[in-house]
Amino acid sequence: MSVMKISKILMVDDDMHIRRIAEISLKRVGKWDVRLASSGKEALLLVKEDLPDLILLDVSMPELDGPAIFAILKEDQSTASVPVIFLTGRVLHDEVEEYRKLGVAGVINKPFDPLKLPGEIMRLLEAE
């Protein structure tokens, strides 16, 4: 199975520190075009504006959390096909399984190694 081509990534996290380190990692190591959103609201606007090839979505955020945003994206015909990877600080196996059942492309644990994040993303997408 051929791996889908990725060039545009949207990264959603309310923690500035995560956004900064992820930006360097995705841009410089992954050589992808990266846009950042600090909330679910902002993310939904950016998705509409220019459809990304992949969305990295933090699970726990105030107001709209990861699963809520994911549900909205799936309901909308125009955004339903964009693969989503969850980022989470929770490492409980059950929770990770639950997210997988929702239909996300994968789950990546925080903290991540910025030098390895793009590789991990590629592996998840290949496994899809």
């Binding site: 410089r28 050589k31 030098l115 793009p118 590789g119």
Partner: peptide
């Protein structure tokens, strides 16, 4: 080394510096 998205050693140095 992960096969995907592997930058060359020189850019890796730069990236490490940025990090």
């Amino acid at each position: 080394i992960a096969t995907a998205a592997q930058p060359s050693p020189s850019t890796l140095d730069d990236i490490e510096r940025e990090i």
